[in-house]
Design a protein around this nucleic acid. Structure first.
Length: 573
DNA sequence: GCCGTTTTCGGCCCGACTGTTTTCAGTCG
């Protein structure tokens, strides 16, 4: 079982226990372990073999035993007994907005409803309104919720959500009385996918702003509307939330709405230790005196912490690091001096070599590598070794034109074929300045097979970078089922760089494995995979991932001076 | 079920919004 599969089991247990009405903190402890497993970045089998399961945050004796049983047998007696008590299909009901564990239990115990279909039928027949605590409005809301569930797609990729949110932000900033408006939530934390769009505003006229918000022409329906908070669904099925407070509370509000939930829970714990209570309004003492914060900095300082960058706010050790003064330095766009993964119209890019070089130069880069596709990837108009040599001739003329303004490297993104061989023979690779090896095809091979393909590439001394290692495409195509432990330890051994691909459809490595790779001292490359000049600006998304992964600038080869980078490439052969 | 700068037992975050209620429960973030 993978970490992800184990996490799903514990999440499932948490849901069932919650419907059963178990102690909420017991439920939370299973949720916490699920989250820990998802973000571990290290194969749980390895920790188990070393007897270190209880080092995982939130794992104690009882859950360690359950993990062992699952790893050994693939099953869990405890879960089987639980599923005999609580019908597992009830968990589907929890996806409906306004249906939580209490109502799921109510529908099951008082109306014999155990599936989404049965619930919908009962709601249509008007049979829910008579249940305790229910009424016509609740019944209608649930029916609406079921329809919204069908309408609403999966989580949005950040690359879709962010531009959409920026347009709303522009609109907000034009509203009368608005002093300030910003992105919040997972958008601001640069999570690679987001569930809804969170926006915050400071306004002298909150009521008027809320009214204007819900009347916006893109609003399909209003989910909730109050004085300080409103939530709507747009015509394209996206949910937006807007929080509003007067300017003197903006710092607390922005911090609160940025989250993550787990991070905020920890902060409230810190406040509690000081005899204070923290909310979106600020800090209050036992007598109810409130301290307001106009900036996030002031709020963190009041809790004895330095300001914590949003990308780190996931309760993955940032609170401890902040307390110890060991928060990592955050990568800035200015740190990046090289773009090492670009395509031109020699393969599937849209621009000429010169246009791509120019785009890099305009953005202050000092090195660009042209890495068109190899011949095997038919759809991408890949280059044969002959065309590769013709391209080299053209790049030579670019060297003349650009002189020492920018270093232009010729490279290739060479396909790792389904049979595990690279698309070019080693002698062709040896002629190139830089080689990226990537998986695009046969990603669904069994773990051993697909992992072996990647290992072959990592061990090839001509290969400098493994491009978008998992091959995932957001939001729907999962990456290859890799044995990450093997991939990472082999990359470490051979000193090959792993790419953080900044294209918002990829963001691959993800933050979890990028963090693990950085901890292991594996060099990382941060590239846009640009196919057009404007793609260079997608680097912001990759910077978000690098920050979320606690990667320090010096660990990224694109931050190195041209001399150091070229020396590293030469040393690799 | 976990966890310990006060604890091996007794804690474990906080408020907005909605609907069904006459003071609160459920859900959500």
């Amino acid at each position: 079982m993978t970490n992800e599969e184990l996490a799903a089991v514990f999440e499932h247990i948490a849901n069932l226990l919650e419907i059963k009405g178990e102690n909420v903190y017991r439920v939370l402890s299973y949720r916490r372990v699920a989250e820990s497993l998802r973000t571990l970045g290290q194969d749980v089998h390895v920790l188990r073999a070393q007897g270190r399961l209880q080092e995982i945050p939130g794992v104690g004796k009882a859950i360690a035993e359950k993990i062992e049983e699952l790893l050994d047998t693939g099953e869990l007696g405890f879960l089987k007994r639980l599923e005999a008590e609580v019908p597992p299909s009830l968990i589907d009901l929890l996806q409906i907005p306004d249906v939580g564990p209490k109502r799921a239990a109510l529908f099951w115990k008082q109306a014999g409803i155990t599936t989404l279909e049965a619930l919908e039928e009962a709601a249509r027949a008007g049979r829910l309104r008579h249940l305790p605590g229910m009424g016509e409005k609740s019944e209608a809301r649930i029916l609406e919720g079921i329809e919204a569930l069908r309408r609403r797609s999966h989580r949005l990729p950040l690359g879709v959500a962010r531009p959409m949110a920026l347009r709303w932000l522009d609109w907000l900033r034009q509203q009368p009385g608005v002093v300030r408006a910003e992105l919040a939530g997972s958008l601001r934390r640069w999570r690679s996918t987001v569930g809804d769009l969170d926006l915050v505003a400071a306004s002298h006229q909150p009521k008027a702003l809320m009214d204007a918000f819900v009347l916006h022409p893109e609003v399909y329906r209003i989910i909730a509307q109050g004085e300080n908070k409103a939530s709507i669904e747009t015509r394209n099925g996206t949910r937006l939330q807007l929080w509003c407070q007067p300017p003197e509370k903006f710092g607390s509000l922005w911090q609160y709405a940025t989250g993550s939930k787990d991070h905020n829970v920890r902060l409230r714990g810190l406040a509690q230790k000081r005899g204070l209570s923290l909310s979106e309004h600020g800090l209050s003492d036992e007598d109810g005196h409130e301290i307001h914060f106009t900036t996030e900095e002031d709020l963190y300082h009041a809790l004895g912490l330095p300001w914590i960058p949003p990308e780190l706010r996931e309760d993955r050790g940032e609170i401890e690091a902040a307390l110890n003064g060991t928060l990592p330095p955050m990568l800035q766009r200015e740190d990046l001096k090289a773009e090492l993964h670009t395509h031109s119209n020699w393969s599937d890019g849209a621009a000429t070599l010169d246009e791509m070089v120019s785009a890099a130069y305009q953005r202050g880069l000092r090195v660009i590598a042209i890495t068109d596709h190899s011949a095997g990837l038919g759809i991408a108009n890949g280059l044969t070794p002959e065309r590769l040599r013709e391209q080299r001739a053209e790049i030579e003329t670019l060297h003349q034109r650009w002189g020492d303004k920018i270093v232009i490297l010729q490279g290739a993104e060479v396909e790792i074929r389904a049979d595990g061989h690279l698309d070019y023979p080693d002698e062709v690779l040896a002629e190139l300045d830089i080689v990226i090896a990537s998986l695009h095809v046969s990603l669904r091979q069994p773990r051993a097979e697909v992992t072996q393909r990647l290992l072959n590439a990592i061990r090839n001394p001509q290969v400098d970078i493994i491009g978008h290692p998992s091959g995932r495409l957001l939001p729907n195509r999962e990456g290859a089922d890799l044995d990450w432990e093997m991939v990472l330890t082999t990359a470490q051994q051979y000193g090959v760089a792993l790419e953080i691909n900044a294209n918002p459809a990829r963001l691959d490595l993800d933050d979890v494995y990028a963090r693990r790779a950085a901890e292991m001292g594996i060099p990382l490359a941060l590239n846009t995979d640009s196919h057009t000049p404007t793609d260079f600006d997608l680097i912001e998304y990759g910077i978000g991932i690098a920050r979320r992964a606690w990667v320090e600038p010096s660990q990224i080869i694109n931050t190195w001076s041209p001399e150091r980078l070229l020396a590293w490439l030469r040393a690799r052969g």
